[in-house]
């Protein structure tokens, strides 16, 4: 793949920027595994966001409206990440499916938290947070599996 940045690099650019461009060129070979890596990280970061906002809500530091808005928005991010992981070209279908399932688990936990929040049910939110933690853990495991060195 011809990278657009490289066509400019013949000019009098400084060395470190040239390095940056080369790095860019390398990363431009955006493979499906890279997309999966990216989306898994997005999902993990999104899950931590939910956990943090739920803690803040429980301690009364975040109002319900804001908390609900955040859950909704993160829910969309997670659904999108799941779809992207599923649609990425499969080199290791089993591991890829495990990742997608883990992200799906996060989505379900977030939806549960959202329902609990709407009902004002603290125990339900607490349970949802527990689900979230478990789903995060399985995401981490699936991620490690996916990127583990293969024999």
């Amino acid at each position: 793949m011809v990278h657009p940045a490289l066509t400019f690099s013949g000019r009098d650019l400084r060395l470190d920027y040239l390095c940056a461009m080369v790095l860019l060129g390398v990363s431009a070979g955006c493979s499906s595994s890279e997309r999966i890596e990216q989306q898994s990280q997005t999902a993990a970061s999104a899950a931590q966001t939910v956990s943090m906002v739920l803690d803040a809500w429980r301690s009364g530091a975040a109002p319900s409206a804001y908390t609900a808005g955040t859950l909704q928005s993160v829910g969309k991010t997670l659904a999108d990440a799941e779809a992207q992981i599923r649609s990425a070209g499969a080199t290791e279908p089993a591991e890829q499916a495990a990742l997608a399932t883990a992200v799906k688990g996060l989505s379900v936990a977030v939806a549960r938290a959202e329902a609990g929040l709407q009902a004002g049910n603290r125990t339900e939110v607490q349970n949802a947070k527990q689900d979230l933690r478990l789903a995060s853990r399985s995401l981490a495991t699936a991620y490690a599996e996916y990127f583990a060195p293969k024999p």
Partner: peptide, 12 residues
């Protein structure tokens, strides 16, 4: 430190 290493949503 909380594991949120991507701020791509203004809610964060």
């Amino acid at each position: 430190t909380q594991g949120i290493n991507q701020v791509d949503d203004y809610h964060q």
